[in-house]
Write a protein that binds this DNA or RNA. Sequence first.
DNA 1: CTGTTAGCGCTTTCAA
DNA 2: TTGAAAGCGCTAACAG
Lengths: 344, 344
Amino acid sequence: MAHGETPFVPLDRAATRADVARLAGVSTAVVSYVINGGPRPVAAATRERVLKSLQTLNYRPNAAARALKLRKVSAVGLVVPDVSNTYFGALARSVSSQAFESGYALLLGDANNSLEREAEQIRSLIGRQVDGLIVVSLSPDADDDIGSTPTVFLDKRVQPGEPSIVVDNYGGATAAVEHLIWHGKKTIGYIGGPVGFPGSDERLNAWRDAVNRARLSESLAHQVRSEFSRRGGYDAAHALLDGSGKRPDAIFVSSDVQALGLLLACRELGVRVPEDLAVVSFDGTDDAVYSDPPLTAVEQPVDTIAAMALQAVLSDGPHEPRTDIPLELVIRRSCGCEGARLAV
Amino acid sequence: MAHGETPFVPLDRAATRADVARLAGVSTAVVSYVINGGPRPVAAATRERVLKSLQTLNYRPNAAARALKLRKVSAVGLVVPDVSNTYFGALARSVSSQAFESGYALLLGDANNSLEREAEQIRSLIGRQVDGLIVVSLSPDADDDIGSTPTVFLDKRVQPGEPSIVVDNYGGATAAVEHLIWHGKKTIGYIGGPVGFPGSDERLNAWRDAVNRARLSESLAHQVRSEFSRRGGYDAAHALLDGSGKRPDAIFVSSDVQALGLLLACRELGVRVPEDLAVVSFDGTDDAVYSDPPLTAVEQPVDTIAAMALQAVLSDGPHEPRTDIPLELVIRRSCGCEGARLAV
DNA sequence: CTGTTAGCGCTTTCAA
DNA sequence: TTGAAAGCGCTAACAG
């Protein structure tokens, strides 16, 4: 071999740290030092040799071994009811991106809108020793055995001291319903999320309180709960609009996807939005921007929520529960406002 | 302590297999045997003792240690351009659910519609030794260093022998465009995905060929490519419809989300769909069902694709590249067909 | 500045 | 049927 280089025999298995060390003629400790940039300094010449071996062996550190040693897998878990729901999709995207930038991978568990599956996913992720776990729970009192894994249940009120990220569901929903009242609506229905879904309960309370304050008690008869899905909203809409009784003249919907279902039902029934029925929804995803008509919606600051959740589970030390992140009502067309800000 | 039970001192750290073994008065091997149901049998009485210790210590196996020993992390990776795109969200959901049922977790990497980020995510997942990797790549010739990780690039044509899942983009797109031609449309535009996106190229070719066969060459001037997003479709639509030149009377759109953007643009411009402009899209997600009008679309069998992809990367042995999964054109309203099957 | 070495928690062969 | 023990690949304390 020319130039007296160390002969190199390709391995049939993946290269390990020992292989690199051998090829570079150093100890495995030194290889670690150059890879991790510490904790001990390495002479420039030595570093070069190591770097070259790394290269020629196409070395990849074994994450499992590293995790075992460091007791840290550099991954966070996220459990949502259904990633194909635009809002949860946006949340997953935001968490994935932000986690990646901090060197964490994202383990995603889709609960399939099932409480049971949700618990299984949580158990599975805990078992994988994720460094942090973020869950959007379908359950009011998800009491899964979290062990010592830093966990935050979004939108769930917890004991003081436990980390918690809760948007101002009540305030946001209040703004939504009051906007409808301001439009002069008299019978304002409500399409909520699954029974027990924490945020959804608060939105329900806000609706009821606002309606009562305005002495619109007839509204209270027009209440349906359904899954967070287009189909759920569609079915709920039919339940609310099909009857021969008096139809509501406005509806507050608990999520954008449900609102999409509602809009389709309205088209089928010949109910014009917003003329016959004013609609305000919750989430403010792209679904609200591109629907027909565009949806006036309470907007959730997805990136902020993702950032706070990550911060809560990944930085150690006790955390102030951060509650009542303020929500903004974004006016579009479905409420009846004209000339509202352009959709895009 | 009553009944002569083994005294139990709670630990400050998570219980390990050794703790369980000690409490049960057996070796760690036996604990493994009962946990894994093998490879050696265990006496019923012993098993009981072990089970009880497991219980009282609230033992959780350490996944990292297990992965290190078995050289298998029981996780698959999925990289998509953007999970908040309804189609990719549905794919992620399907992969998550099916993987979970086979005992695998899902590591999700969102590429943020960036080629660079896509490569980083792939590198990161490979580094984590995922047992399989599924990627929907933005790039025509993603040539990332996959090492020995079983990987399948969806919709990418590869060398014979490499696993591959490719839907019949050409056939599906052909059916879409020919349906438009059957409707008597004369100028059929095309809104495609990002340049180089493998499936998108085939859809483009199908459109061009169909249009040429029908001697509708004027159509060829009406071609735009954009990101797979609502916004991308919106911008593309304006590019196609704003000019003072002749407007197309039909458009084939490469994804549902882009079609949503197109529909909004049409509403703003007063272009009626399907009367002034017939539209057929690609994906057939819920977005197509709930839009206004509902979209006639080439439907991708998400669950099948997810299942095949998982199968390809998780079962060992060489794989026949499975190509040209047939696609079905689902008729709704945006093409101009009346009385088409009900939306829901 | 560099090398040696003891584990991290688990699986499984081999011996009893 | 059970136990002892080696070792997966990596980190970092400790010794040189």
